[in-house]
Write a protein that binds this DNA or RNA. Structure first.
Length: 574
DNA sequence: GCCGTTTTCGGCCCGACTGTTTTCAGTCG
């Protein structure tokens, strides 16, 4: 029973309470608790073990008791009793866009609908439209939405969304009379996954911009078309909303639609206590109704007497208090990165010669790079055997010696075997400048086995870092079970760095874990795991995770100039 | 059900849009 399981259970309680027409506040309380548990950097069982469940913001004494029961017995009586009131299929109805708790409850109670399929039948044969307060349009809406993706499972990775958005924005800028155009929402906050895409604009001719927008070649369906708001579906199924407002409202609008929801709720609750009401048009005094507008976000936050908050930090995770105290972190940027310490070449599964990777790194302005081709023990990804590695070390040394103003490090992404031993003997690892170890097999080991395995690798003095520490692949593979708290404590003690892997499918460590690692004194390293020169550009995603984790430049190993980096790692003298 | 720089009780973010209604409830972000 991990954090995600507990969160899912609390969400189900919330959904069932919602179906039952319980107080919306109670429903929200359970959803809040679910989100809080899901975003927890620590394992909830550890929190429960020391009796600190109630210290989680959003978890009170009642929910804490139920979580305790769930962890100890594997089930929750409260949930079981709620489940007995609604067949399991009724809850699935909530996944259909446009179907909320009220409609789901009524079709179940009044029509006996117990599944999505039965909802379709009731919409087609007129029984849905016959319900009081509903009509034919509602039935048509439901039918149309039944073919769309489940509203809870339709998120795509940041890396898939961003190229689509950039192409759309470019097309718009080429053809429409825009003054300003920017992203908002989860994309602007660099969330690891994106639901839909929000674009914000100002223009001298909004109608013309909207005309262009809904007529773009990428558009497969127009969902709405107005002068201030339009929405489309792209040919790859992504929903894109475009909003246009007057210049003087742009700051408030951008703030509103950047979110996150948690951030905005907390910001509005805070402001309300100060007699101010916030919305997308500006800041109003509650007593007088007088409203101020803002053409940029900095002024908006300053008007609330707090520092500007970077979008990546807007998660309702303490950033508002820090902004009031003027103690926000000085976040790391891509400009701080001086080298990449996880890159592959055609010696293993990369696509180009080492020289091409070096050229690409230099073109980015980097000072150094480590080539870390795979070890080959389990025949994975064309990995190197000891003989080939020795050959590569010699090759890299000669190449490095020929380079002016750039250091090429001889490294390895060495496989951590099931027992925690490494794929190369220590004598061989000792010859390398940089060793990054990682798990590529045996993902189903128990939590204890996996934790011991990784800790043993961390404790090897030749290991400089652990790559993609949880092994997750977004949308394809869950992270393996591992006690990250113990991993972090060990890494902090041994001075071993943990990676934020920038590959859009990985983003591992994720922000909440990276933040916890830093709290425990772990050094991070932000790498791309590049298998081609183009992949070096993925550094933006890793940096985004670091920024969402409140990480400053001094928390990232590869912001160091080479002269300081070499003192931290087992680098061979040139 | 949670929470406290007014509060341990009485609040709980805010508005757009839709469809069904003659003033509002439901859904969404």
């Amino acid at each position: 029973m991990n954090n995600a399981d507990v969160a899912a259970t609390l969400s189900e309680v919330a959904a069932l309470l919602d179906l039952k027409n319980e107080s919306g506040f109670k429903v929200r309380a359970y959803y809040n608790a679910a989100r809080a548990v899901d975003g927890l950097a620590e394992e909830i069982r550890d929190v429960a073990a020391r009796g600190s469940l109630k210290n989680i913001k959003g978890v009170g004494s009642s929910t804490a008791e139920r979580i305790d029961e769930l962890l100890q017995t594997g089930s929750m009586k409260y949930l079981e009793s709620l489940r007995s009131e609604f067949p399991s299929g009724v809850r699935d109805l909530l996944g259909v866009p446009g179907v909320g708790p009220s409609l789901a409850r009524r079709v179940y109670q009044e029509l006996g609908v117990e599944s999505v399929e039965q909802l379709r039948e009731a919409s087609e044969d007129g029984r849905l439209a016959a319900l009081s307060g509903l009509g034919e349009k509602t039935a048509q809406n439901v039918l149309r939405n039944l073919s769309r993706a489940n509203k809870r499972e339709s998120r795509i990775s940041l890396g898939k969304a961003l190229p689509v958005v950039e192409e759309l924005m470019q097309a718009l800028e080429n053809k429409a009379p825009l003054r300003q155009l920017t992203t908002a929402g989860s994309l602007r906050r660099w969330a690891p996954t994106i639901g839909d895409i929000d674009l914000m604009a100002t223009s001298v001719d909004p109608d013309r911009v909207m005309e262009v927008f809904v007529s773009l070649p990428q558009v497969s369906q127009v969902l709405a078309h107005g002068s201030t708001k339009s929405a489309i579906l792209t040919d790859n199924g992504l929903q894109v909303d475009l909003r246009i407002v007057p210049d003087e409202s742009f700051g408030a609008l951008l703030q509103h639609f950047t979110g996150s929801k948690d951030h905005n709720i907390e910001l509005r609750e805070y402001s309300l206590h100060r007699g101010l009401s916030l919305n997308e048009y500006g800041i109003a005094e509650v007593e007088t109704g007088q409203r101020r507008t803002f053409d940029d976000e900095h002024a908006f936050y300053e008007a609330l007497e707090m520092a500007y908050i970077e979008p990546e930090l807007r998660q309702g995770a303490g950033e508002i208090a820090a902004a009031r105290a003027r103690s926000l972190p000085d976040l790391v940027t891509t400009r701080d990165i001086r080298g990449d310490l996880h890159a592959h070449s055609e010696w293993s599964d990369g696509s180009v010669p080492i020289e091409s990777m070096v050229e690409a790194a230099r073109a980015r302005g980097y000072e150094y790079m480590a080539i870390t081709d795979h070890s080959g023990g389990i025949g994975l990804a064309g990995g190197l055997n000891p003989e080939r590695l020795l050959e590569q070390i010699g090759y890299i040394r000669r190449l490095d010696a020929s380079l002016e103003g750039f250091r090429l490090l001889s490294g390895s992404e060495v496989d951590i075997k099931r027992d925690g031993s490494l794929d190369f003997p220590d004598e061989l690892l000792a010859q390398l400048d940089w060793v990054i170890a990682s798990v590529h097999s045996g993902f189903t080991q128990t939590r204890e086995q996996m934790t011991d395995r990784i800790i043993r690798a961390i404790e090897n003095p030749h290991v400089d870092a652990i790559a993609h520490p949880t092994g997750r692949l977004i949308g394809r593979r869950e992270p393996y079970e591992v006690d990250l708290e113990r991993v972090f404590e060990t890494a902090a003690r041994t001075g071993t760095a943990l990676e934020i892997n920038s590959f859009p499918d990985r983003l591992d460590l994720v922000d909440t874990h990276a933040r916890r690692a830093r709290e425990l004194g772990v050094m991070l390293v932000v790498n791309t795991d590049a298998h081609s020169p183009l992949h070096l550009d993925n550094i933006i995603y890793g940096i985004a995770m670091a920024r969402r984790a409140w990480v400053e430049p001094e928390g990232v190993l590869n912001t160091l100039p080479f002269s300081e980096l070499r003192a931290q790692i087992s680098c061979v003298e040139r």
